[in-house]
Design a protein around this nucleic acid. Structure first.
Length: 554
RNA sequence: AGUUCGAUAGUGUAACGGUAACACUACAGAUUUUGAUUCUGUCAUUUCAGGUUCGAACCCUGGUCGAACUACCA
């Protein structure tokens, strides 16, 4: 059952560590989001990695909210993050908050001051930036760097006590103003912010910087493998420096390249912009690359997990084709979604030789890919609706659908032949008159007629109108984040098309929100939460592969 | 400019010194009461140049290209 799969570089590290007996073979990871936005596909990759690793190596994974900046963080985000992680199918060992460590972190800072490894700096942000130097140009020390330990102690205590306004002073680690790694040129570790925190309230007016909180939080939790994205690689020496100075648990950080997906954006700032400026309706708009957006769109959690697994993990830059994600969605839904018939752009078909007053009931299997899916009844009469696309007045050679004199099978029903075309005054086809072959009933066909094409249909008498929201890519370019100009210049104006003329089969009458179907020959669709008693709303989750459409384009 | 990463089919990952694998895509074909699914087949000498070695995608040297880093954000 177990397939031999090669290890990614982090798994290799972990297995080596286990073999070497590091931390007695214990594996403990964590997923550390900042609660200042909704989780997206990139986070999904990180979640699958961190929780997956813990599971694979019989370890644990914490959910830790990195909430060191009170001005951007909100409880709404905490809730959405928890919901998203759960939906993806993972359970955290402990729900933790960096803000719970504020007292401990303060003590760490005091400890550094006591060792002469930190000082209070009165410089302005501008002054500090200048003193910091530049890439290739060393920084210079200022007069505050040589303050006495006692003075630093007193000042830092006063900072905590609220004696100074925002920005008046900062606490800095005393490392090396000429270090080639800019992050080690005496980084700020505490700043004054008289702001209300979503958890600690007004208890604090000084807050640790991320760099002074993240590594120590990992250490406090005894995280063995602290996994993050590549841009933090320069921070690692700093975290190690703190760990060493403080003499605390040596958590080790490993960095991987964040996954980029074509036609998607994963900058929280930009996603927030899309929402605030109403380019999309909400964080969970089905066009959004957020986990909540994908969930509403109908992407199964298993598909997202499969995707993360398929694209793997490495250290090189990448732009994964969104087609891979869509492949995973189709593969999952192919097994789980029941088939139904829905006509998105209806055209009326009258069967001239079918008794006008007759209605018969046909049996249709729900999903031939799934033995347990069962069957349902379909009503059939002389007036039906078929897809406008499935008829052509002047069809090309390999058009296996309806046209003048052509025959097709109606799925689960009879073979029909088109005899007459009715048009309106503008020459638009409004109705087709066809005859059915009485002997060709699905499952008991004795007609001897063989047709290549099979099309879907609904019975006009009891079909239900539905609103079907069709989605296209949110952006017109593969890599909007790195494209010329502003990313908003590349928003696809037609990313959503609302179809209000669709007609779906009667069995969908009470379809529950979130339930998923394959509209035969069209794609997978998911019932949206915007449904109400009078309006059935579907989101197009993903289309079916359409080889014929591709053929036609050539 | 300095530091640190990285470079393998169109895309993503693998090969752990013994002659490039898997998946997606694309193309070709078979099956099909979904032009879906399923099934077959086709598509690279690994950024370049040297070197070490019987043997290099892998080790060494140098070049080229790409990325990250100069927030009181995370």
């Amino acid at each position: 059952m177990s397939e031999e799969k090669s290890l990614n570089f982090i798994e290799e590290i972990i297995e080596n560590d286990i073999a070497a007996g590091l931390h007695n073979g214990r594996v403990h990871t964590r997923f550390p989001p900042e609660p200042n936005g909704y989780l997206h596909i990139g986070h999904a990759s990180s979640i699958c990695l961190n929780f997956g690793l813990a599971k694979k190596y019989n370890g644990q994974c914490n959910l830790r909210f990195d909430d060191t900046n009170p001005s951007t963080e909100e409880t709404e985000y905490v809730d959405s993050i928890k919901a998203d992680v759960k939906w993806l199918g993972f359970e955290w060992h402990e729900e933790l908050y960096t803000s719970d460590y504020f007292e401990q972190l303060y003590d760490y800072a005091v400890m550094l001051i006591g060792k002469g490894c930190a000082y209070v700096d009165d410089s302005s942000a501008e002054e500090m930036a200048i003193q910091k130097g530049d890439i290739g140009k060393p920084g210079v020390a200022n007069e505050f760097r040589s303050r006495s330990i006692a003075e630093n102690m007193a000042l830092f205590a006063e900072m905590r006590a609220g004696k100074f306004p925002d920005g008046a002073k900062v606490l800095r680690a005393k490392i090396d103003m000429t270090h080639p790694n800019l992050l080690l040129r005496d980084p700020i570790i505490y700043r004054i912010k008289h702001a209300h925190h979503h958890r600690s309230g007004d208890k604090w007016c000084i807050y640790p910087m991320y760099d002074f909180a993240h590594g120590q939080s990992d250490s406090i939790e005894h995280i063995t493998h602290s996994i993050c994205t590549l841009e933090f690689i320069h921070h690692r020496p700093l975290y190690n420096w703190f760990i060493e100075q403080l003499g605390i648990f040596p958590s080790h950080q490993y960095e991987f390249a964040r996954r980029s997906v074509s036609y998607m954006i994963t900058s929280k700032r930009k996603l927030l912009q899309l929402v605030n400026e109403q380019h999309v309706k909400s964080w969970d708009d089905p066009r959004m690359p957020t986990i909540s957006g994908m969930r509403r769109r109908g992407y199964p959690a298993a598909a997202v997990r499969q995707f993360c697994d398929m694209i793997g993990i490495a250290k090189r830059e990448n732009l994964v084709d969104i087609g891979v994600l869509e492949f995973c969605v189709r593969e999952q839904l192919n097994k789980s979604a029941n088939r139904v018939m829905a006509v998105l752009d209806p055209i009326k078909v009258v069967l001239t030789n079918y008794p006008e007053s007759q209605t018969e009931h046909l049996t249709a299997d729900n999903n031939t890919e799934n033995e347990n899916a069962g069957t349902r009844q379909l009503s059939f009469s002389n007036t039906l609706l078929i897809e406008r696309d499935d008829f052509m007045e002047e069809p090309p050679k390999k058009f296996f659908r309806l046209g003048p004199g052509l025959s097709v099978r109606l799925k689960h029903a009879y073979i029909i032949t088109c005899n007459e075309i009715i048009k309106d005054e503008n020459g638009i086809v409004t109705e087709l008159h066809c005859t059915y072959n009485e002997l060709s009933k699905s499952g008991q066909d004795t007609s001897g007629v063989h047709v290549k094409g099979v099309i879907h249909w609904v019975n006009a008498a009891d079909a239900i109108p539905a609103e079907v929201r069709m989605y296209n890519r949110l952006f017109t370019v593969e890599d909007p984040a790195n494209a010329e100009g502003d990313f908003k210049d590349h928003i696809n104006a037609n990313s959503m098309e609302v179809n209000t003329k669709a007609m779906v089969e009667a069995s969908l009458k009470n379809a529950a929100v979130g339930s998923q179907y394959q509209f035969m020959r069209k794609g997978y669709f998911t019932v949206d939460k915007d449904c109400d008693a009078s309006n059935l709303v579907f989101n197009q989750t993903v289309s079916l592969k359409d080889t014929f459409a591709k053929e036609m384009k050539k």
